[in-house]
Design a protein around this nucleic acid. Sequence first.
DNA 1: ACAATATAATACTTATACGTAATATATGTA
DNA 2: TACATATATTACGTATAAGTATTATATTGT
Lengths: 172, 172
Amino acid sequence: MVNISWISISYRVTGIKYYMVPDLDQFSVTDCHYYLLSRATLVITSALKKGFTDAGVEKVKPGYLGVLVSLWQKDGLKTVELARMAGLEPSSMTGLLDRMERDGLIYRSSDPHDRRAQHIVLTDFGKEIKKPVLEVLDKTLKSVFQDIEESEINIIKKVLNKVLNNAKRGSN
Amino acid sequence: MVNISWISISYRVTGIKYYMVPDLDQFSVTDCHYYLLSRATLVITSALKKGFTDAGVEKVKPGYLGVLVSLWQKDGLKTVELARMAGLEPSSMTGLLDRMERDGLIYRSSDPHDRRAQHIVLTDFGKEIKKPVLEVLDKTLKSVFQDIEESEINIIKKVLNKVLNNAKRGSN
DNA sequence: ACAATATAATACTTATACGTAATATATGTA
DNA sequence: TACATATATTACGTATAAGTATTATATTGT
């Protein structure tokens, strides 16, 4: 794409001093882990969004996927449970559920035993769209990851899991 | 983390029919490419943000990095040029530059030869923070990608570049 | 020269996710 | 029982990025 990079010289220059600020002029974005990760996430999100629209389920946004799949497995989960399952903060989950409620996919139902808690329940519409949504998901990911070997996919998964663990440890 | 996954069964089940909707109950998030990519991006972003704050350059947000590094290489680029270099839409770049201007990192300067264009220029402050910002970047990425082999990093880069190309072709 | 088209930047709306704080309710302990 | 603490959810502000439409200029073709 272009000629700049704002990342991770350390992996490409051996013997560099830890805090040495490297000369940037010789790097390209396609060498930058952070750039590549964020762009890949964005293009997949964008492809999913287009896929849902083309399939006539434009009410479904990519961000809803985690919640939908969780609820298709077990309806009536609580907000915190959904947040934990999707890897989001509870406060993020609230806004997500607001949008999903607005779009007619779920509703909130009070817990008679714990008046703090709300159970998140799929509407009929939320149940009906399961098949087309999963089809779009499968098709989109097949398209985006086409011509990539299974062994490489496995390395990606392994490395990204390690990244998540490194970050988790770093934040403690 | 948890027991759900909303992704990409296709790579793990051989011989699956293209549009077959798979049974979800047996998958885990840590097997999901889309999940892993988006989480990894978010944890790195979060680590960078914390790094900037700890280093006393809390005016710098992770999203500013692409623009800053571009301008440190060549000051006075135009909005569209910066957008293209960072891989963003020009409309996204406008908002980003608004925040950077508000935070005292850049200012806009009209082009006398093309009255449509604005040149984006670093303030003194925007120039001064180069060293600490690059230090935080280097340190953070070293930390997040620690214990990951160079060969694996290279595979990640290769695969993600292919993903970006696949998505680009798919959108035409 | 003028009309059609292209380019640069922006405004506005929406989606996504974090962090902090507030509120209500439960639970555990002295 | 009363108080401290923990839990569930939400409210509000901010960062990030896309998409659509608009405005102002430039450029090109006739």
